[in-house]
Amino acid sequence: MTSETVNTPQRRRRLPSMSVLGPIIALLVLIAIGAFLNPNFLGAGNITNVLARSAFIGIIAVGMTFVITAGGLDLSVGSMAAFIAGLMILVMNAALPTLGVGVPIILLGMAVALVAGLLAGLLNGFLITTLGIEAFIVTLGTMGIYRSLVTWLADGGTLSLDFGLRTFYRPVYFDGILGISWPIIVFALVVVIGEVIMSRARFGRHCAATGSSEHVAHYSNVNVGRTRLATYAMLGVLVGVATIMYVPRLGSASASTGVLWELEAIAAVIIGGTVLKGGFGRVWGTVIGVLILSLIDNILNLTDLVSPYLNGAIQGVIIILAVILQREAKAKG
């Protein structure tokens, strides 16, 4: 009976659901509002600025997409970025007398950031998977630890990169290829690779299965612990990558570096349609989420409708709204 009708793989093209269209429409509306309010909004300068600023959160949010898809959460990314930035600056300043200003010392700094990110991610992952502690508690704890460590390293003040080094390192944030700055290029690369892994690779499928049902994944030969651990490690490395891009921008780190980045990253992921409880993730959606958040910030800065100081409040409202919309969609579907 029905088995015959379903047995031919038909290319079905139904209208995309609201969960797909919603974020895109929101983004387009924001662009229209921005263009209407300020003629400079669509200028090359502003677009580059918005994209470059989105890159830090964006790179982290791509990693966060995997963590949340696999049923986890990481609140520590903002503090982790600040700590890695501080560590990187300390190591580079310390190595300055021996290595001098040049490419090797930059590479050293980058290596420190990547390794520190990897270790921090592995630590979170180890505590969560091997010791079986709630992700919320573990990363709330490490969030406090890293924040306090960077404050301590800076002795309550600011850690600054040596002036000569700073001048040498600046191009990593401000230069690029064909007028596209490095953070944007790196962000784009991370997104493309992330999207392919999420939608096409075995690892992405394993993340979704783990987040959807840990038991089913275990009984289906998915190594649940290792999959989760890998998502946290990957997020740690991406926090390192974001920090590498961030340090040359200001050349300093302090207790206020990366504050609320975790909120922005998680908000971007959820706005993008990834399910907070895990089981379904969408990297390209996260990109749209990041752009939406950056544009709101940008519009607040370019116009004087609402104080830019209220940006955090707006992000908080958006993340709660996004979850409510997700729930409604689920109830209907």
Binding site: A201, R202, F203, R205, H206, S213, G279
Partner: peptide, 23 residues
């Protein structure tokens, strides 16, 4: 996986059979 489709469920356990890194 009750929230997923038949395809994802069918191949989950033997995913290796459906390609190396990419599926």
């Amino acid at each position: 996986l009750l929230d997923k489709g038949m395809r994802e469920n069918l191949t989950l356990q033997a995913l290796r059979k459906f390609g190396g890194v990419l599926i």
